[in-house]
Nucleic acid binder design. Structure first.
Lengths: 211, 211
DNA sequence: ACATTTTTGTTAATATTATGTCAAAAAGAA
DNA sequence: TTCTTTTTGACATAATATTAACAAAAATGT
């Protein structure tokens, strides 16, 4: 069953294809050629065809790609054709922002619980769910068979909390803490290092001003 | 003055070097070799040396790199050796999360103002600053000579708001809206597409489960 | 029905990125 | 001081990724 392994660069682009296809569907467009899509996405047509052909021949000569079909195929590839239960650890502004993000729900990511260690906010509602004590982490994960967690706490506590998460059965971690987590091979980490993103912006603004 | 152009891959890694150097400084370590750093960062020593040599010879044979010195040099390269005034457009949870992020201030990013179109929250405080009406965008940017803006509003309004920002003098945009912005060449966009990040996590969790 | 056009999937060519190698420089040890 | 070890910066090599080219398939037009 071992899929030929797909390069990081392709994986990076996949969700962007998905987003464009979604937009095209919303516009009621039915089919698109790689060359037309390449103009919109500012890629080469060749790259689009090669990227998609990593997963199968979704197009047809003389016709192009059926948007609805390709959209659904990419959803399958991205594993978003079914629901994912997730929890959020850390109910600060960022944790709450994620919890309230309706777009995630639209794509099948369901926030089942949100946790914080601060007793003064435990019990508060975030949207429709209640902030729970960290003591409940393990039981909630196990009872609901949750596999995905967003980590929105400072880097200090993050390392130990992530261990707890993994012990409780989490296999995918969306990490917003400013630290690279060291985890077993079968655990997946997706880092969102916002301050690094901001530094890249700063770098490129510096470049832009020099020219 | 034209710097030899630096590949995106290098720029991507630069802030991560900076973060590791910061951590090393906090640990009171004075010097490090590319090979020791490569172990910590899980890169090859060769890549580290080549990355850094894009910007200058910061190391010394038989000694390695002086951490404080390299840290300061990278700060200069990243253009974070001086303060950056910024504004935030959109005072939802995400905008508020960014406004409250003390780490940004530590690196010299100063949030000067936050804007929202919702009259019911205009005037509310976010940390030490007050949410202002969108009408004030242009005057605040011009009066304070602000060059950087974080865009934390839905994709629909984002496109027009970004035009306004650019007209008012913004040259760097930290974009959290789910849309690729079409801007003049001299304007810099750094996208943070959270839902794409989440889809990549989902993809890789799917892969991990197959093995 | 036939010719023309479009457009894919695939293979080949090019370009970019990462890794390995090594002489030369400096540090540290004897 | 002199010898040995460490370690860089530069360059050569290998691996990846992107772009180009094109035959074959299907659609469209006449």
């Amino acid at each position: 069953m071992a899929k030929k392994d797909i390069s990081q660069a392709v994986i990076q682009r996949l969700p962007r294809y998905y987003r464009y296809l979604e937009d095209l569907m919303d516009q009621g467009i039915e089919r698109i050629s790689s060359s037309e899509l390449s103009k919109r996405m500012k890629l080469t047509a060749s790259q689009i065809r090669q990227d998609l052909n990593n997963f199968g021949g979704f197009g047809q000569q003389g016709y192009g790609y059926n948007i609805k079909n390709l959209h659904d195929e990419i959803a399958k590839i991205l594993n978003i054709d079914n629901e994912h239960k997730m929890i959020i650890v850390g109910a600060g502004h960022l944790g709450q922002a994620l919890a309230n993000y309706t777009n995630f729900r639209k794509r099948g990511f369901i926030v089942k619980a949100i946790f914080d260690k601060d007793p003064s906010i435990i019990g508060n509602m975030v949207g429709e769910i209640q902030i729970q004590s960290m003591d409940k982490l393990e039981s909630v994960i196990k009872d609901n068979d949750i596999k995905m967690a967003a980590v929105c706490i400072p880097k200090g506590p993050a390392i130990k909390v992530v261990e707890q998460l993994i012990d409780a059965g989490i296999i995918g971690i969306w990490n917003f803490a400013h630290v690279d987590l060291d985890v077993p091979e079968n655990i997946v980490i997706e880092n969102v290092h916002l301050s690094e993103s901001l530094m890249r912006l700063s770098y490129r603004m510096g470049e832009a001003l020099e020219d």
